[in-house]
Amino acid sequence: MKKITLIFLIFSGILQAQQKPNIIFILTDDQSYDLLGCTGNAIVQTPHIDKLANNGTLFTNAHVTSAICTPSRISILLSQYERKHGVNFNSGTSVSDTAWKNSYPVIMRNNGYYTGWIGKNHAPIGKGGYNSELMEKSFDYWYAGHGHLGFYPKDNHDIFNDAIAFTQPEIINEGVDEFLDPNARKLKGALHFLEERPSDKPFMLSINFNLPHGASTSTMKQKDSDDTIYKTLYRDLEIPLHKNYIAKADIKTPKLPENLLHVEDRQTGYNYVDTPKDLKERYIRELQAMTGIDRLVGNLTAKLKALKLHKNTIIIFTSDHGLFGGQQGLGGKALCYEQTTHVPIIIFNPNTPKKNRGKKK
């Protein structure tokens, strides 16, 4: 079953349930299938996401239909193929107001859900796209930036200026300012959403990362203010090259025409795959980003339990597409080979019978 259809059917089925569960939908960016412990990565530390898979269902053969951010994310929002919605990264088009009414956030809100959108938005919605403000007005809780966030979102989006943290996963995570005073002001973020949501409504929270996307990992600087995760983790390990990796200098007879390799017209942004040294550095950053994201998932599940919401909250985790890591000498995405279309989908439903948990589909 195609990913976009699967996710939309999940949301539709939820609306038909007698007792409406809460839903948290976590979407990463440029995350290949093999960047989790539960999908076979022996290096990355993702214990909290792995726990979701072990207690839920891991879909091992899920594929996106457009291996690039904007069309893939709109496909998820609308449950439509790119050829239907017609919005691509460089198309200059946006989702119409009429089409947006059939998106999962609008449908959920119209059915009594308190809705939130946190992190990155890379879907132009309404006349004028990102400037229409239709996206912002469609949610009860909005804490996001249009386009790329960078690893340090305050550098790119004013909405994050009041955050205590500086790095992307931690800004998206924030809630009570426990670092300074448990009784101090509450910061915006995923934990804040859970703390402040109305208790008389079910909620639907969409958390959207701009990681481990190259536009964010390229800006990681190992600042003094960065968590140890982003400075030293994985740097003492021998990092293997991806299977079928080939350096650009070693390609004697290209198997694909050069103009095809520039299908994104942004291919140079992924030219770190050209040499083993640069690729290993970027791969370490991707691993670090995944561990940062995993920590947020752990904080979310702990907060749900503290608020006694854990028995009625479904968590869905996936990525908008995968990424080439130098396999056959390729970098970037957009070319719809399995490396770029294959993504994990994890669905954790606390009400699933124990005998059906930990399944792989």
Rank of each mutant, 00 (worst) to 15 (best):
E136Y: 03
P124T: 05
T167A: 10
M204G: 03
K84G: 00
S138F: 11
D140V: 02
F179E: 12
P105N: 12
T217Y: 09
K137V: 09
F151L: 03
P202D: 04
N102F: 14
E170L: 09
F151E: 03
F193C: 01
H85A: 05
I172S: 00
K154Q: 13
G129Y: 09
D155M: 02
Q80W: 03
D181C: 07
F179S: 12
K127V: 15
S138W: 11
I125K: 06
D200F: 13
G129M: 09
T98R: 14
S103C: 07
G92S: 11
L78H: 03
N173H: 09
M135E: 03
W100Y: 10
L149C: 07
F166A: 07
A144Q: 01
N210D: 15
E195W: 01
N210M: 12
P182N: 09
A184F: 09
F139R: 06
H213Q: 07
G175Q: 00
D162Y: 11
L149T: 04
F203T: 08
Q168P: 11
K84L: 11
K186N: 05
H213G: 07
L191Q: 05
E174W: 04
G128T: 03
D140T: 02
L149R: 05
S94N: 04
K188D: 02
S94W: 00
G126L: 09
D97A: 14
T93V: 11
N173I: 06
H213M: 04
P212N: 09
L78M: 15
M204K: 08
T115M: 05
D158R: 12
P124F: 08
H122K: 15
G116S: 06
S94M: 06
G129W: 04
A123G: 13
N110H: 12
N110M: 10
Q168A: 12
G119K: 00
G116P: 02
N173L: 08
G112K: 10
Y141Q: 11
I159G: 10
L211D: 03
L211P: 05
W142M: 01
F179Y: 08
D162T: 13
N161E: 14
P169H: 13
E136P: 05
F203L: 09
E178R: 14
M204L: 15
A99V: 12
T217M: 11
I207G: 01
P124Q: 10
R109C: 08
P153A: 10
D158F: 08
D181Q: 01
S199M: 13
N110Y: 08
D97Q: 15
R185G: 10
I107K: 02
D140P: 04
S79F: 00
N88L: 11
P182R: 06
I107P: 08
E196D: 15
S206R: 09
N110V: 07
M108R: 00
A165W: 01
K120R: 11
K127D: 14
I164T: 15
S138R: 10
Y152G: 01
N183Y: 14
S218W: 07
